[in-house]
Protein backbone atom coordinates (compact mmCIF):
# COMPACT_ATOMS: atom_id res chain seq x y z
CA UNK A 1 0.00 0.00 0.00
CA UNK A 2 1.81 3.06 -1.21
CA UNK A 3 2.45 5.91 1.15
CA UNK A 4 2.68 9.51 0.03
CA UNK A 5 6.46 9.15 -0.03
CA UNK A 6 6.28 6.05 -2.24
CA UNK A 7 3.82 7.73 -4.57
CA UNK A 8 6.35 10.52 -4.98
CA UNK A 9 9.12 8.15 -6.15
CA UNK A 10 8.84 9.62 -9.60
CA UNK A 11 9.88 12.94 -11.11
CA UNK A 12 9.73 16.25 -9.26
CA UNK A 13 6.70 18.39 -10.09
CA UNK A 14 7.40 21.20 -12.53
CA UNK A 15 4.13 23.11 -12.18
CA UNK A 16 4.44 26.87 -11.64
CA UNK A 17 4.99 27.83 -8.00
CA UNK A 18 1.57 28.30 -6.44
CA UNK A 19 -0.26 26.29 -9.12
CA UNK A 20 -3.58 24.81 -8.05
CA UNK A 21 -2.36 21.43 -9.24
CA UNK A 22 -0.17 21.13 -6.14
CA UNK A 23 -3.20 21.07 -3.88
CA UNK A 24 -4.87 18.40 -5.99
CA UNK A 25 -1.63 16.39 -6.13
CA UNK A 26 -1.26 16.39 -2.38
CA UNK A 27 -4.92 15.62 -1.78
CA UNK A 28 -4.89 12.63 -4.10
CA UNK A 29 -1.67 11.14 -2.73
CA UNK A 30 -2.98 11.43 0.83
CA UNK A 31 -6.32 9.98 -0.24
CA UNK A 32 -4.65 6.93 -1.79
CA UNK A 33 -2.57 6.41 1.34
CA UNK A 34 -5.51 6.87 3.69
CA UNK A 35 -7.80 4.59 1.68
CA UNK A 36 -5.08 1.95 1.85
CA UNK A 37 -5.27 1.16 -1.86
CA UNK A 38 -2.58 -1.29 -2.89
CA UNK A 39 -0.34 -0.31 -5.79
CA UNK A 40 -1.59 -3.28 -7.81
CA UNK A 41 -5.30 -2.55 -7.48
CA UNK A 42 -5.58 0.82 -9.17
CA UNK A 43 -4.42 2.53 -12.34
CA UNK A 44 -4.35 6.18 -13.29
CA UNK A 45 -4.86 7.79 -16.70
CA UNK A 46 -4.09 11.35 -17.77
CA UNK A 47 -4.91 13.52 -20.75
CA UNK A 48 -2.67 16.28 -22.06
CA UNK A 49 -2.34 19.64 -20.35
CA UNK A 50 -0.71 21.01 -17.21
CA UNK A 51 -2.61 18.41 -15.19
CA UNK A 52 -1.18 15.74 -17.48
CA UNK A 53 2.37 16.56 -16.55
CA UNK A 54 1.34 15.01 -13.25
CA UNK A 55 1.70 11.63 -14.95
CA UNK A 56 5.44 11.97 -14.36
CA UNK A 57 5.00 12.84 -10.71
CA UNK A 58 3.21 9.74 -9.48
CA UNK A 59 4.88 6.38 -8.97
CA UNK A 60 1.86 4.28 -10.01
CA UNK A 61 0.54 2.06 -12.78
CA UNK A 62 -0.71 4.49 -15.35
CA UNK A 63 -1.12 5.74 -18.86
CA UNK A 64 -0.54 9.22 -20.21
CA UNK A 65 -2.76 9.40 -23.25
CA UNK A 66 -3.63 12.00 -25.88
CA UNK A 67 -5.19 15.41 -25.49
CA UNK A 68 -8.88 14.89 -24.79
CA UNK A 69 -8.74 11.11 -24.90
CA UNK A 70 -8.03 10.05 -21.34
CA UNK A 71 -11.58 8.80 -20.76
CA UNK A 72 -11.67 6.21 -23.55
CA UNK A 73 -8.24 4.87 -22.58
CA UNK A 74 -9.44 4.64 -18.99
CA UNK A 75 -12.65 2.98 -20.17
CA UNK A 76 -10.64 0.39 -22.09
CA UNK A 77 -8.81 -0.47 -18.88
CA UNK A 78 -11.89 -0.39 -16.65
CA UNK A 79 -14.05 -2.68 -18.78
CA UNK A 80 -11.37 -5.29 -19.38
CA UNK A 81 -9.67 -5.33 -15.98
CA UNK A 82 -12.27 -5.71 -13.23
CA UNK A 83 -9.42 -6.12 -10.76
CA UNK A 84 -8.31 -2.48 -11.25
CA UNK A 85 -9.88 0.72 -9.93
CA UNK A 86 -9.34 3.46 -12.46
CA UNK A 87 -8.72 7.11 -11.65
CA UNK A 88 -8.65 9.54 -14.58
CA UNK A 89 -7.23 13.05 -14.50
CA UNK A 90 -8.15 15.61 -17.14
CA UNK A 91 -8.09 19.34 -17.70
CA UNK A 92 -10.96 21.63 -18.65
CA UNK A 93 -9.94 22.10 -22.27
CA UNK A 94 -8.89 18.46 -22.38
CA UNK A 95 -11.97 16.95 -20.75
CA UNK A 96 -14.79 19.41 -21.52
CA UNK A 97 -13.54 20.78 -24.86
CA UNK A 98 -11.74 18.43 -27.21
CA UNK A 99 -12.84 15.44 -25.12
CA UNK A 100 -16.40 16.69 -24.59
CA UNK A 101 -17.96 13.85 -26.55
CA UNK A 102 -16.22 11.25 -24.41
CA UNK A 103 -17.25 13.17 -21.28
CA UNK A 104 -20.97 13.06 -22.11
CA UNK A 105 -20.92 9.41 -23.08
CA UNK A 106 -18.79 8.32 -20.15
CA UNK A 107 -21.28 9.97 -17.81
CA UNK A 108 -24.26 8.20 -19.34
CA UNK A 109 -22.41 4.88 -19.35
CA UNK A 110 -21.89 5.03 -15.60
CA UNK A 111 -18.61 3.16 -15.86
CA UNK A 112 -17.28 2.46 -12.41
CA UNK A 113 -14.32 4.84 -12.31
CA UNK A 114 -13.34 8.25 -11.00
CA UNK A 115 -12.96 11.23 -13.33
CA UNK A 116 -11.12 14.24 -11.93
CA UNK A 117 -11.24 17.43 -13.98
CA UNK A 118 -8.56 20.03 -13.24
CA UNK A 119 -10.61 23.13 -14.01
CA UNK A 120 -8.53 26.32 -14.18
CA UNK A 121 -10.76 27.97 -16.79
CA UNK A 122 -7.80 28.56 -19.09
CA UNK A 123 -5.35 26.71 -21.33
CA UNK A 124 -2.14 26.75 -19.31
CA UNK A 125 0.24 24.49 -21.24
CA UNK A 126 -0.44 26.26 -24.55
CA UNK A 127 0.00 29.70 -22.92
CA UNK A 128 -3.28 31.17 -21.87
CA UNK A 129 -6.04 30.75 -24.45
CA UNK A 130 -9.69 30.63 -23.42
CA UNK A 131 -11.04 27.28 -22.31
CA UNK A 132 -14.58 25.87 -22.44
CA UNK A 133 -15.05 26.95 -18.83
CA UNK A 134 -13.59 30.45 -19.16
CA UNK A 135 -16.06 33.04 -17.94
CA UNK A 136 -18.00 34.88 -20.60
CA UNK A 137 -16.32 38.11 -21.78
CA UNK A 138 -12.91 37.05 -20.45
CA UNK A 139 -10.11 38.36 -22.65
CA UNK A 140 -7.37 35.95 -23.63
CA UNK A 141 -4.86 35.71 -26.53
CA UNK A 142 -7.37 33.66 -28.54
CA UNK A 143 -10.33 35.86 -27.52
CA UNK A 144 -8.98 39.42 -27.47
CA UNK A 145 -12.50 40.80 -27.67
CA UNK A 146 -13.67 38.60 -24.83
CA UNK A 147 -15.13 35.08 -24.80
CA UNK A 148 -18.50 35.15 -26.54
CA UNK A 149 -19.77 31.72 -25.51
CA UNK A 150 -21.39 30.72 -22.27
CA UNK A 151 -19.07 28.52 -20.27
CA UNK A 152 -19.69 24.78 -20.12
CA UNK A 153 -21.49 23.80 -16.93
CA UNK A 154 -19.82 20.47 -16.16
CA UNK A 155 -21.84 19.79 -13.04
CA UNK A 156 -25.12 20.61 -14.76
CA UNK A 157 -24.26 18.53 -17.82
CA UNK A 158 -23.28 15.59 -15.63
CA UNK A 159 -26.42 15.78 -13.52
CA UNK A 160 -28.61 16.14 -16.60
CA UNK A 161 -26.87 13.26 -18.33
CA UNK A 162 -27.56 10.82 -15.51
CA UNK A 163 -24.32 10.92 -13.55
CA UNK A 164 -24.40 8.95 -10.32
CA UNK A 165 -21.82 11.00 -8.42
CA UNK A 166 -21.13 14.68 -9.10
CA UNK A 167 -19.02 16.91 -6.90
CA UNK A 168 -17.07 20.11 -7.16
CA UNK A 169 -13.95 20.87 -5.21
CA UNK A 170 -11.51 23.71 -4.73
CA UNK A 171 -7.77 23.13 -4.78
CA UNK A 172 -7.39 25.69 -1.99
CA UNK A 173 -9.25 23.46 0.48
CA UNK A 174 -7.29 20.22 0.66
CA UNK A 175 -9.10 18.55 3.60
CA UNK A 176 -12.44 19.09 1.87
CA UNK A 177 -10.99 17.90 -1.43
CA UNK A 178 -9.75 14.68 0.16
CA UNK A 179 -13.24 13.93 1.44
CA UNK A 180 -14.59 14.37 -2.08
CA UNK A 181 -11.84 12.15 -3.52
CA UNK A 182 -12.54 9.42 -1.02
CA UNK A 183 -16.27 9.41 -1.65
CA UNK A 184 -15.72 9.51 -5.41
CA UNK A 185 -13.24 6.63 -5.45
CA UNK A 186 -15.45 4.52 -3.19
CA UNK A 187 -18.59 5.32 -5.20
CA UNK A 188 -19.62 2.44 -7.45
CA UNK A 189 -20.29 4.16 -10.74
CA UNK A 190 -18.95 7.08 -12.74
CA UNK A 191 -17.78 9.84 -10.39
CA UNK A 192 -17.39 13.34 -11.76
CA UNK A 193 -15.12 15.67 -9.79
CA UNK A 194 -14.93 19.19 -11.18
CA UNK A 195 -12.10 20.86 -9.27
CA UNK A 196 -11.46 24.60 -9.43
CA UNK A 197 -7.72 24.82 -9.57
CA UNK A 198 -6.51 28.39 -10.15
CA UNK A 199 -3.84 28.98 -12.77
CA UNK A 200 -1.50 31.51 -11.24
CA UNK A 201 0.25 32.30 -14.51
CA UNK A 202 -2.46 32.72 -17.15
CA UNK A 203 -5.75 33.29 -15.36
CA UNK A 204 -5.40 36.59 -13.54
CA UNK A 205 -9.10 36.70 -12.85
CA UNK A 206 -10.21 33.44 -11.18
CA UNK A 207 -7.48 33.45 -8.52
CA UNK A 208 -7.22 31.66 -5.20
CA UNK A 209 -8.44 34.74 -3.36
CA UNK A 210 -11.24 35.24 -5.85
CA UNK A 211 -12.46 31.72 -5.09
CA UNK A 212 -11.91 32.00 -1.34
CA UNK A 213 -14.23 34.98 -1.31
CA UNK A 214 -16.95 33.03 -3.08
CA UNK A 215 -16.93 29.30 -2.31
CA UNK A 216 -19.20 27.77 0.27
CA UNK A 217 -19.84 24.14 1.18
CA UNK A 218 -22.95 22.40 -0.03
CA UNK A 219 -23.07 20.36 3.16
CA UNK A 220 -23.62 23.62 5.04
CA UNK A 221 -26.82 24.28 3.13
CA UNK A 222 -29.81 23.51 5.34
CA UNK A 223 -32.01 20.69 4.00
CA UNK A 224 -29.96 20.02 0.87
CA UNK A 225 -30.67 16.50 -0.42
CA UNK A 226 -27.88 15.21 -2.69
CA UNK A 227 -30.12 12.42 -4.00
CA UNK A 228 -32.50 14.94 -5.61
CA UNK A 229 -31.35 15.28 -9.21
CA UNK A 230 -33.55 18.30 -9.97
CA UNK A 231 -32.25 20.24 -6.97
CA UNK A 232 -28.71 19.32 -7.95
CA UNK A 233 -29.30 20.74 -11.40
CA UNK A 234 -30.76 23.95 -9.96
CA UNK A 235 -27.75 24.33 -7.69
CA UNK A 236 -25.39 23.80 -10.62
CA UNK A 237 -27.02 26.73 -12.41
CA UNK A 238 -26.20 29.05 -9.52
CA UNK A 239 -22.55 28.63 -10.43
CA UNK A 240 -22.72 31.07 -13.28
CA UNK A 241 -21.48 34.51 -12.52
CA UNK A 242 -20.71 37.74 -14.24
CA UNK A 243 -17.06 38.36 -14.84
CA UNK A 244 -17.06 41.26 -12.44
CA UNK A 245 -19.54 40.05 -9.86
CA UNK A 246 -18.92 41.01 -6.26
CA UNK A 247 -18.21 38.23 -3.74
CA UNK A 248 -21.60 38.50 -2.10
CA UNK A 249 -23.38 38.47 -5.46
CA UNK A 250 -22.03 35.19 -6.80
CA UNK A 251 -21.43 32.32 -4.46
CA UNK A 252 -19.88 29.11 -5.73
CA UNK A 253 -21.01 25.87 -4.09
CA UNK A 254 -18.43 23.13 -3.52
CA UNK A 255 -19.11 19.63 -2.28
CA UNK A 256 -21.33 16.77 -3.43
CA UNK A 257 -24.12 17.98 -5.71
CA UNK A 258 -25.57 14.59 -6.42
CA UNK A 259 -25.11 10.98 -5.46
CA UNK A 260 -27.01 7.84 -6.37
CA UNK A 261 -25.44 5.15 -4.23
CA UNK A 262 -26.85 1.92 -5.68
CA UNK A 263 -26.77 2.56 -9.39
CA UNK A 264 -26.50 0.10 -12.26
CA UNK A 265 -22.95 0.46 -13.52
CA UNK A 266 -21.69 -0.31 -17.00
CA UNK A 267 -19.71 -3.18 -15.54
CA UNK A 268 -22.93 -4.56 -14.00
CA UNK A 269 -24.19 -4.87 -17.57
CA UNK A 270 -21.23 -7.03 -18.59
CA UNK A 271 -21.73 -10.50 -17.10
CA UNK A 272 -18.86 -11.72 -19.29
CA UNK A 273 -16.48 -9.42 -17.40
CA UNK A 274 -15.85 -12.06 -14.78
CA UNK A 275 -12.05 -12.01 -14.95
CA UNK A 276 -9.24 -9.90 -16.41
CA UNK A 277 -9.93 -10.23 -20.12
CA UNK A 278 -6.32 -11.10 -20.98
CA UNK A 279 -7.08 -14.52 -19.54
CA UNK A 280 -9.04 -15.33 -22.70
CA UNK A 281 -5.78 -15.36 -24.66
CA UNK A 282 -4.05 -18.06 -22.68
CA UNK A 283 -4.89 -20.62 -25.36
CA UNK A 284 -6.70 -20.53 -28.71
CA UNK A 285 -10.45 -20.37 -28.39
CA UNK A 286 -12.44 -23.29 -29.68
CA UNK A 287 -14.91 -21.69 -32.06
CA UNK A 288 -16.06 -24.88 -33.75
CA UNK A 289 -19.64 -24.36 -32.53
CA UNK A 290 -19.76 -21.02 -34.35
CA UNK A 291 -18.12 -22.45 -37.45
CA UNK A 292 -20.75 -25.20 -37.50
CA UNK A 293 -23.47 -22.58 -37.85
CA UNK A 294 -21.81 -21.51 -41.08
CA UNK A 295 -21.56 -25.09 -42.32
CA UNK A 296 -18.08 -25.84 -40.99
Amino acid sequence: MPTVAELERAMKPTWCPGCGNFGMYRALKETIEELGLSAEEFAMVWGIGCHGNGADFYNVQGFHGLHGRALPVATGIAITRPDLKVIVEMGDGDGYGIGGNHFIHSVRRNIDMTAIFHNNQIYGLTTGQASPTSDQFMKTPSTPGGVVEEPVNPVGVSVAQGATFVARGFAGDIPHLKELYKRAILHEGFSVLDIYQPCVTWNKFNTFSWFRDRVYKIEDLPDYDPTDRTKAFDLSMSTFHELTCAPDECKIPIGVFFEEPDSFTYQDGLPQLDRPMWKHAEKPRNISATMAKYGG
Partner: peptide
Protein backbone atom coordinates in the same frame (compact mmCIF):
# COMPACT_ATOMS: atom_id res chain seq x y z
CA UNK B 1 -5.09 0.98 -26.43
CA UNK B 2 -6.39 1.05 -22.85
CA UNK B 3 -7.47 -2.57 -23.05
CA UNK B 4 -4.08 -3.54 -24.49
CA UNK B 5 -2.38 -1.71 -21.60
CA UNK B 6 -4.27 -4.10 -19.34
CA UNK B 7 -3.00 -7.06 -21.40
CA UNK B 8 -6.23 -7.86 -23.20
Amino acid sequence: VGAAFGGT
